[in-house]
């Protein structure tokens, strides 16, 4: 009996030694920065490390929550995340279903679809800005000069609603290939015999989609939604480069804290965002686990 226990203890020790490197990695690159960030959020932090951070209690949090722009930005971010995640996943799903069918030139078509995702953001932003330019942009040339839909070129990236619509469109267009690739991989893993059996039972394409395809790809879609929601919650680059009229959370964070190197306030904002995102992730995980 005691020999058995001793063996178990030895195995447990060996197991612990094996996970030790991973544990050290997690502690050093996740837990330590997280704790340090919380520590910074209670201090006024200078850029120069030789100047000691000054403890200011909840001052950074009070500044943050008393700023009406923060709540406005938070609401705008939720709206942006919900719409972009829904549209990019839906478009990705539809294109994946199309590309899963056999047709001539499918290989080339699949490669072309992923182009927006692999091109550098900055070059895409420039292309879009040129497309919507009031003097020589192709969009205004078509909509104003040729089709005469407007009297003058609309302020595409200056009107709050138009610019919100455009950054959503940009994100959907840029990231749907990611959803497409993930869903396509899941579609290709579905056993063909399931469809054959469904056809014998007289199920049509619509029925087959809801009874076979959708349940099979649902885990992938769930993961996509969670990942995309987290990524878009912190979105900064393309929105900031395209317009200054959509102050989503990444932009707010940059403008409020990083542009003036107020790292204490920046830390407080990231702590608040971390709590929001973790609540969302835990909520979604619980929901997914029930499925």
């Amino acid at each position: 009996m005691s020999q058995k226990n001793s063996l178990k203890r030895a195995e447990a020790r060996l197991g612990f030694i094996f996970i030790l490197p991973s544990l050290i990695l997690i502690l050093s690159i996740i837990i330590y920065p997280l704790c340090y960030n919380i520590y910074l959020s209670f201090h006024k932090v200078a850029l120069n490390p030789l100047k000691t951070p000054k403890f200011i209690g909840f001052s950074n949090y009070l500044t943050l929550f008393s700023d009406g722009e923060f709540l406005k930005s938070l609401m705008l971010t939720f709206l942006y995340v919900i719409i972009t995640v829904a549209t990019s996943t839906t478009v990705g799903l539809l294109v994946a279903l199309l590309m899963n069918r056999k047709f001539k030139g499918r290989g080339i078509a699949r490669s072309l679809v992923i182009l927006p995702y692999v091109a550098p953001v900055i070059s895409l932003v420039f292309v879009w800005q040129y497309m919507f330019n009031g003097i020589y942009g192709v969009v205004n040339y078509a909509a104003v000069d040729k089709l005469q839909l407007f009297n003058a070129a609309p302020a595409w990236f200056d009107h709050p609603v138009l610019s919100m619509a455009l950054v959503i469109l940009f994100d959907t267009w840029r990231v749907f290939p990611y959803s497409f690739m993930m869903i396509l991989a899941a579609l290709q893993a579905i056993d063909e015999s399931l469809y054959e059996a469904a056809m014998i039972d007289g199920a049509g394409a619509w029925k087959q989609f809801w009874a076979i395809t959708f349940p099979e790809i649902l885990p992938v879609i769930s993961s996509l939604v969670v990942l995309r929601a987290i990524w878009n919650f912190y979105k900064f680059d393309d929105v900031y480069l395209l317009t200054k009229q959509v102050p989503i959370m990444g932009v707010y964070l940059y403008q409020t804290a990083f542009s003036v190197y107020d790292f204490g306030l920046a830390a407080a904002i990231t702590v608040a965002l971390f709590i929001i995102v973790m609540t969302f992730v835990l909520f979604v995980r619980r929901k997914v686990n029930r499925i």
Binding site: F126, Q129, N133, G134, I135, A152, A155
Partner: peptide, 13 residues
């Protein structure tokens, strides 16, 4: 030209 003009827009125009 109307809108938010930056370096690119000013130089190009």
């Amino acid at each position: 030209p109307q809108g938010s003009n930056g370096v690119t827009q000013v130089k190009d125009a």
